[in-house]
């Protein structure tokens, strides 16, 4: 093997393996060498010891109780998959990790309570996945909404000084006869219901008019949600249909 008898190369590979920049096939190949090379394993252990203290700079976050329950259930030799988090557990998780104010829960409870029995489970996915910014992007708000399966199905974007919200459906079904999609801003403040941002027109892409420029009309909403509402598309004070997707709304710049 090429790396053998090249201590400098060995050490460099071990360092980048531990740092995480050794990726893909190179990483897999390196792991193969590790299994049969004690010298290489030692180099990795040394780098783990060198860089390991860095993890102490990462803020600890207590995992939700269900993680432990799922682990315990797998120790008995039963390889049963972890129970899927229910909608309610998801809300509890949000509260437990402090990622959501009780207003969000209240807002969603209203939604659920008013549209039984078509409750959809919406697992919590807090990420806002946004490509690495390019210099040409304007100051903006971006929101990517995910469906119950965790797939991004809806993207919304607005420049901070514009009252136009650009939206795109990503492989989303049209709402169907007698229904329409409605976009809501969630304030995450206790007792505050979701605020209507507007009716989503049919078609893959569209723009909807915000009540004010995004810096005023979107700044208060850490998250957006999309619900499926009955026709006709009248202005509503809160959703009556099920939430079909939701996601964080982030100020990009």
């Amino acid at each position: 093997m090429k790396y053998r008898n090249k201590p400098e190369l060995q050490d460099r590979l071990a360092a980048e393996y531990v740092l995480g920049t050794l990726r893909g096939r190179a990483r897999a190949r390196f792991e193969g060498w590790l299994r049969e090379d004690a010298v290489l394993r030692r180099a990795v252990a040394e780098w783990e010891a060198r860089l390991g203290p860095l993890t102490e700079a990462v803020a600890p976050i207590a995992p939700p109780q269900r993680v432990w329950q799922a682990i315990e259930s797998r120790l008995d030799g039963s390889a049963a998959p972890a129970p899927r988090a229910s909608f309610w557990e998801s809300l509890a998780f949000w509260r437990a990790t402090g990622l959501i104010a009780s207003g969000m829960a209240a807002a969603l409870l209203v939604t659920v309570a008013t549209q039984k029995p078509q409750v959809v489970e919406v697992p919590v996915v807090r990420s806002v996945e946004v490509p690495v910014p390019s210099t040409s992007m304007q100051p903006s708000y971006v929101s990517m909404l995910r469906d119950e399966a965790g797939n991004v199905v809806f993207i919304a974007y607005a420049a901070r000084q514009s009252d136009e919200l650009w939206i795109k459906k990503v492989g989303m079904d049209e709402p169907g006869e007698g229904k329409h999609y409605h976009l809501w801003g969630l304030t995450m403040k206790p007792g505050e219901p979701p605020q209507s941002l507007g009716v989503i027109p049919p078609g893959e892409k569209a723009t909807i008019k915000l009540a004010a420029v995004a810096d005023k009309s979107l700044a208060d909403f850490p998250a957006l949600a999309l619900s499926l509402e009955p026709m006709p598309p009248v202005p509503r004070s809160e959703p009556v249909g099920p939430v079909v997707a939701k996601g964080d709304c982030q100020k990009f710049w």
Partner: peptide, 23 residues
């Protein structure tokens, strides 16, 4: 677990995936 969950969330940026991996 809190330290390791913190590490996983920081790297993955997704709680759901971090939970799965922590398990």
């Amino acid at each position: 677990s809190a330290q390791l969950f913190g590490v996983a969330i920081r790297m993955l940026r997704r709680e759901d995936l971090a939970e799965e991996i922590l398990q």
